[in-house]
Design a protein around this nucleic acid. Structure first.
Lengths: 179, 179
DNA sequence: GTCGGCATGTAAGCTGTTACATGATTGA
DNA sequence: TCAATCATGTAACAGCTTACATGCCGAC
């Protein structure tokens, strides 16, 4: 789908190696697009073969060699083409909800533990998103204007996680009210 | 992942054909687990081979023959095993956010149109979820108690869609404020 | 001396999508 | 007569995960 285009976006603003990309995923895009290192390296290979990237080996003194990838004009054109095309609405496949749906076949304790595990994950995600938001809000006007669209994606994360946690409260109330 | 288990859950409460399952997906589970007919038929084949289902052909007068699948004891055991096991938190891959993140490379109009398209989809989903909720709330106590866990999954859908739409308002404000 | 970070990949397998394929019946 | 519903599949491909594989450097 759009891992290809996520990579093009990241390399458009700054050329880099597969390893660099993985770090950038963790910092920003990774909150709404996941990729493991194996997939990134494979995708980079494909993007090079397609002529959207070019690659230059860069020797380093103390570190292993890097392969620095940068967009070609064709890659830039492809990115613009993709941006002009409608994206498919997301399909959701949420195993936790499948489990809850069938929860009558298992114990309430089991469900409560499962919810607690997931709540921790969502709580931590929300905390780190809020920390990023604080940093953003402390920037000057010019920087905030430049980052206004990435900031909107951050807001999506924040509102989404808050809604998840509000839902988790409803679930806990229901599970405790009738244990 | 858990398409297998979603199918086991649906067949646990009521044996049925692949076609029946697809209808049931559309009515309930489909709001948080998607599957095309091709995948369902293939999965049914695998589940039969694994010994979790058994299958009986059922001739019909005016309609094509049906293959009715039902859980075996091994299938039931597998379902219980899966329910006792923690599920992985969802990974999110949201192409719309990727596009918005890179929105500086395209026009504001393009982004506004994209948002409008997605807003329609989410609005319609929310409406149908709210309609299901109204039906649920009109049920008697006994029925509501029986459906309380599926109802929680419905609530997840409702809260999630409402949060999405609230976010879309923020986005529109930002996109219109600086067109 | 061991753990985490830097840096890159291959290969097998599972999951999911798209395209192709068929054919009857019912209602507008 | 045209579209929708019923009913089932195969085949090729794309996307993603898991396991395997290597090796150096710096900090604690």
């Amino acid at each position: 789908m759009s891992l290809k285009h996520a990579i093009l976006i990241l390399l458009e603003s700054q050329p880099g190696s597969g390893y660099d990309l993985l770090k950038r995923f963790k910092e920003g895009l990774g909150y709404f697009w996941n990729a493991k290192h194996q997939q990134v390296y494979q995708e980079l290979k494909k993007l090079n073969e397609a002529g959207w990237l070019e690659c230059e080996a860069q020797a380093q003194e103390t570190r292993p060699d890097k392969k620095v990838h940068r967009l070609t004009p064709a890659g830039h054109a492809e990115l613009l083409r993709w941006l002009g095309e409608p994206v498919q609405p997301n399909k959701i496949n949420d195993a936790l909800l499948v489990k809850l749906y069938a929860g009558a076949h298992t114990s309430t304790d089991n469900l409560r533990e499962e919810m607690a595990r997931h709540r921790d994950v969502h709580r931590k995600t929300l905390d780190s998103l809020l920390a990023i938001e604080r940093d953003y809000l402390a920037l000057n006007d010019e920087q905030r204007t430049r980052l206004r669209l990435p900031y909107l994606t951050l807001r999506r994360g924040i509102l989404g996680e808050q809604a998840w946690l509000a839902w988790a409260d409803e679930v806990d109330q229901e599970l405790n009210g009738s244990s």
